[in-house]
Computed example of a mutant assay.
Amino acid sequence: MSKKYHFNLEANWSGGRDGAGKISSGKLQAPISAPAELGGPGTGTNPEELLLGAASTCYLITLGIVLTNRKLPVEDITLASECILDGEGGLKFEKIIHRPTIILGKDATEEDIETAKKGAERAESACMISKTLEGNVEVTVEPTITIQS
């Protein structure tokens, strides 16, 4: 028998495209609105940012786990992520690009750099959100690996 986990969210909304609302789920408390880029007021977060945030945080947490499991001398990990929407025929997520920067310790080897690159790719395929998006949204990884100076 599989174990099930439940997460809940409550939300309210007032108005149309120019309306606003709020969401509440555990530690997440945020105002919401349609983004200014899509004709909304841009006064709160929006579905585009939330999906990108879910994909990015899942990838980043998974990356940390993967690199730790590979026993790499990681000093720091940062992440810049981008989503691309296709507006033709109705709005649709087309692609998410994760650009992690992994800084390894001074004693890291070329083999460690290669292992970190492979780990960055592995984290994308192991990430729960990436698995959920598979077949609907392309998710790619463009890692940068450096050694601390």
Rank of each mutant, 00 (worst) to 15 (best):
P35I: 07
P73L: 05
A123W: 10
F93R: 03
G119T: 00
T57M: 06
P41D: 13
G19W: 03
C58S: 07
E94M: 11
I103R: 14
D112A: 14
G89M: 03
E114S: 14
H98P: 03
G16I: 02
E10H: 14
I32V: 13
C58K: 02
K95A: 08
L85Y: 05
D112K: 13
G44F: 01
E111V: 04
G21E: 01
D86K: 07
D18P: 05
A120Q: 09
L79A: 03
A126L: 15
G26F: 06
G105A: 09
L63M: 02
S25M: 08
M128E: 11
G42T: 07
D112W: 13
G42V: 07
G40I: 05
N46A: 01
E82V: 11
T68R: 11
S33M: 01
G21P: 01
L28S: 12
A20D: 12
T115H: 10
S24A: 12
K118F: 12
R70N: 06
A34Y: 11
M128D: 10
A30N: 09
C58F: 06
G15D: 10
I97D: 08
G90H: 05
R17S: 12
G105L: 08
L133F: 06
G89H: 03
E37S: 05
S81Q: 03
A108Y: 07
Q29A: 11
G16E: 13
E88Y: 09
P31N: 12
S33E: 04
I103C: 11
K71I: 11
S14Y: 14
A116G: 06
N12G: 14
G15F: 09
E114H: 12
S14Q: 15
T62I: 03
A123M: 11
K27I: 14
I23D: 02
S14C: 14
T109I: 12
T101Y: 09
E94P: 07
Y59C: 00
L38R: 12
K131N: 14
G16N: 10
I97R: 14
C83A: 09
L52V: 00
T78C: 03
I84M: 09
I96C: 04
P35E: 06
L79C: 04
G16P: 01
M128P: 13
I77W: 00
E49R: 04
G19E: 01
H98N: 04
G89D: 01
S81P: 05
G19M: 03
I84P: 02
A116N: 04
A11E: 04
P41F: 08
P47D: 00
A30H: 06
S25I: 08
